[in-house]
Design a protein around this nucleic acid. Sequence first.
DNA 1: CGAACTGTTGAAAACTTTCAAATCTGGTGG
DNA 2: CCACCAGATTTGAAAGTTTTCAACAGTTCG
Lengths: 244, 244
Amino acid sequence: MYEATRSRESHPFGPHQIDELLQLVQASVPFQRRLVRADDVIFQAGQAFVNLYIANSGFYKLVNSSGEGREQVVGLHFKGDWMGLDGIAHGCYGCEAVALDTGEIWAVSYESLFHSAMKTPALLAAMHSAMSRELVRDHDAMLSLCTLPADARVAGFLRYWADALEQRGLRTDQVTLRMSRAEIGNYLGMTLETVSRALSRMARDEVIRFAEKGRREIHIPQVQALTSFIREACAAPVGTANAR
Amino acid sequence: MYEATRSRESHPFGPHQIDELLQLVQASVPFQRRLVRADDVIFQAGQAFVNLYIANSGFYKLVNSSGEGREQVVGLHFKGDWMGLDGIAHGCYGCEAVALDTGEIWAVSYESLFHSAMKTPALLAAMHSAMSRELVRDHDAMLSLCTLPADARVAGFLRYWADALEQRGLRTDQVTLRMSRAEIGNYLGMTLETVSRALSRMARDEVIRFAEKGRREIHIPQVQALTSFIREACAAPVGTANAR
DNA sequence: CGAACTGTTGAAAACTTTCAAATCTGGTGG
DNA sequence: CCACCAGATTTGAAAGTTTTCAACAGTTCG
């Protein structure tokens, strides 16, 4: 769903930067490794804020909840991403973090991180950079949510996931979604049926292909085709192009 | 639009904290004051990131743009809020910041801030807190955007504005919107007509009252009534309650 | 093999947008 | 001072998109 709004060549973000971050953390602060499996909860909303969490591997979602039971996936996180940053302000986590797959999480006490950062400029810079990237992502997510029709948001979601994999040096032609249609729909502000229909249309247009029966493994011949699909979905009323 | 998702009593945020922050900045880093008027641009998207900006007074919006010309208001900022934080990650601002009214902005070089923060824990803590608060706000905005119907989002917007004023020790029964219906609609992911209709319904239900001819000054007898209105808007199909 | 889940698809209903027209405000110039 | 114009807001009606409701198919697991 996120958008590459402008050039970022001056500050590339790729596998090298991510490994560097992880090494930096490893070298400068104590942390605890935790292995997680799908649906494991890393921390809960409202819980006292103590640690920040860095994904060393795996996939994670952040879920925000209203008092009345409305829930919203507000972020997806991959290797090198920090989680729990929204706990700094109020002393308790604002979201719940849940693993979408098996993976390894590093827990770093914010206090020790804070002290280390005061002595290690690179660490402080990395932390600020992580928070800032998070803000950029949120803003891009809002842009997509508010200005794109449903089909385009789903295509944008796939492109975002593919981009995240690419930044981590992984192949992007094959994406295994770790989320159900309902989770995707929640994240994108639409129902699961709408997600399903959008994916079907993309498959019909051969922008994607379903690689297995479960329909969660998605083949993306060219990520760029998703961008075209988004553009078309914005321009054209539903049945205009390729209607049969 | 934002939601008070859970208790935050352990870390209150009010006029005292804001004044403290401003004093802290004043005491620890050099900064430039800049007086602005409505529609003045503080910084533009893509511009080289040098300064962070702190609102000393006035009202501001942050606008994110896609390459194809779609624009989205992704944040509203008040006294004590930081702007430009999304520039840290990529070395250029991700959004454009625009003043909604006259006000005073403080420009602080990020570099000098960074250095001062390494020596002044309170400053570093304040900065992290500001970024974290921003993340929480974004998450709450996404929750509203994705889970609330249009009427409720507009009511939530008014409540958010009133809350922001209250946190700054200002009166909340009288709110002068600094934004046109179109800007509000953009921020809330709906058209200006939908905003207008929602406000009209709230006025009809006496949740708000228009205090002048321009219809931008809004009287809110009890902020709590907005919360009830939101709840009702969620539960009930459009013409269910108070239909005539 | 059946139950529980997940995903797909169709059709009707609901909500929001689009298009249009009218009203109002504020500012400008005669 | 008043007429007039541009821009903002409101409101109605039609159109469009998305949701809701429902039924069906495929998968997984005990």
